[in-house]
Design a protein around this nucleic acid. Structure first.
Length: 447
DNA sequence: TTTTGAGTTGTTCGA
DNA sequence: GTCGAACAACTCAAA
């Protein structure tokens, strides 16, 4: 009995519940629908990475992949009817848009007598699974993590796909324009080669080196996790027992925590999770728009901030520590809404994931899950000196200042007359803006 | 129900 | 230069 494997955020052939379930029924037609809504929002780098990954996946399946462009409801139904499939298998999607889309597709399929089987998920533990004893959601990471580690899970096992080649139904992937960004290699082999090499060499030091942007201290698995080229359970299934592995496991759990938070509170995608923070004054006037533009163009005059933005524009990825610094600067030094920064990140990041990205921003902005002290304002100079002590990260991304010594490179303005002419002066004074931010946040808690 | 302890990622100031 | 305290108040989780 022919069935369809509807591919969404699970671009891999191994350890894939939906694919495994489809294989159990007989020949499989692998289908990917390019949704115009996604085309609108994703930005060229992520689309390019997605399309490259799809091509690699297609080659892996002997050219059997069916690509369709259009409304998923129409396209899934059309392909189902065309191949005479009796069931459609997909892995669950938990973000708000995916949930409503899948409901509609399930209904449309039902009307032609076909069942949409939702098998597996992009997470080790499905969002919505972990609850407190009273059944409500957990909103603090540490207790979430304790419970998360107790939840049993298993891999999807092994299966032998019998691909039914109906590629004549396939259309070309849309033209998406060009990016100059140099993106990660696509495909499962590239992902596993990176993981095997990196974990063997760097996982043991992960606890500390993950904070150093000049070092190869993070796994860079995020783009592969974003599209399901690897499943997180594949990564944690056989971690060694040492401190580095423990921290890595907890980072995987952070990804699941934010997915869980968004699942319970779909409105928190673009709105403050904490409603009381709605009264926090943020600037949205013309001057704020101009400050935002300077930040987007990496001309703030704070090297660590500009280096981070440049890294993202250059390779579609930014080091986690630097993401926090860059975000803190936008929100607390420039007093701009976190949503502006979150949208910009989503446009340029290859790994852009709505739950991790937007809740990460909310964490920085103090509007999210963390009961963060309002006085936690990152000092871009201090963070730079602490986590990039040799300045190597700054030199890599800002050649204009690469000649500066280790002491001055974090804050070129301290050189007085010797300040490099082709690098901008600081756009704002951090000490002043820090005070401004503290006053604004304090006013919220005083109410 | 009440109480208690704790909460990813920080900075500054003064001893 | 190093180190500990202060920076608020509140919400959440669990006993």
């Amino acid at each position: 009995m022919t069935s369809i494997w509807w591919i969404r955020r699970d671009l891999r052939t191994e350890d894939n519940g939906a694919l495994g379930a489809a294989c159990a029924e007989g020949p499989v037609v692998p289908l990917f629908v390019v949704d115009p809504i996604f085309l609108q929002h994703a930005g060229v780098p992520r689309l390019q990475f997605l399309f490259g990954t799809l091509r690699e996946l297609d080659a892996r399946m002997g050219g059997a992949l069916v690509i369709r462009v259009g409304d998923p409801i129409t396209e899934v139904v059309a392909v189902t009817q065309a191949v005479g499939a009796k069931a459609v298998f997909a892995n669950r999607d938990f973000v708000p848009y995916g949930q409503s889309r899948d409901e509609k597709v399930a209904k449309a399929l039902q009307s032609i007598g076909v069942h949409l089987v939702r098998a597996d998920s992009p997470y080790v533990v499905d969002p919505g699974t972990i609850r407190k004893d009273d059944g409500t959601a957990v909103r603090v990471f540490t207790p979430f993590y304790k419970r998360w580690q107790q939840v049993p899970w298993q891999s999807a096992g092994t299966y032998e796909p019998d691909w039914l080649n109906t590629a004549s139904m396939s259309v070309e992937l849309p033209e998406i324009g060009m990016t100059t960004a140099i993106l990660p290699d696509v495909g499962q082999d590239a992902a596993w080669s990176r993981w095997n090499g990196w974990s063997a060499q760097h996982l043991a030091e992960y606890k500390d080196s993950r904070n150093l942007p000049a070092v190869d201290g993070t796994s860079m698995m995020s783009p592969y996790l974003r599209f399901g080229v690897v499943h997180p359970r594949q990564l944690i299934s056989d971690l060694p027992s040492h401190a580095g592995a423990d921290v890595f496991r907890s980072e995987i759990a952070w990804r699941e925590f934010y997915a869980d938070v968004l699942f319970h509170r779909p409105d928190s995608m673009w709105k403050n999770l904490q409603a009381k923070m709605d009264v926090l004054p943020v600037d949205t006037d013309l001057a704020a728009k101009k400050r935002f533009a300077v930040w987007c163009e990496a001309r703030t005059g704070y090297p660590i901030v500009d280096a981070g933005i440049r890294q993202m524009l250059a390779i579609g990825w930014m080091h986690n520590r630097v993401r926090m610094i860059v975000a803190s600067f936008l929100v607390k030094d420039l007093h701009v809404p976190w949503q502006w920064g979150a949208r910009f990140f989503m446009k340029h990041l290859v790994d852009g994931d709505i739950a991790s990205n937007n809740h990460g921003w909310q964490w920085t902005a103090g509007t999210g899950t963390d009961a963060s002290p309002y006085f936690r304002v990152f000092n871009p100079f201090g963070q730079s000196a602490k986590f990039d002590p040799t300045g190597d990260y700054l030199r890599q991304w800002i050649p204009e200042i690469s000649d500066l010594d280790d002491e001055h490179i974090h804050a070129p303005w301290t050189l007085g007359m010797l300040v490099p002419k082709n690098y901008p002066a600081p756009m704002v004074d951090h000490a002043t803006e820090r005070e401004e931010a503290l006053a604004r946040y304090k006013a919220v808690s005083g109410k």
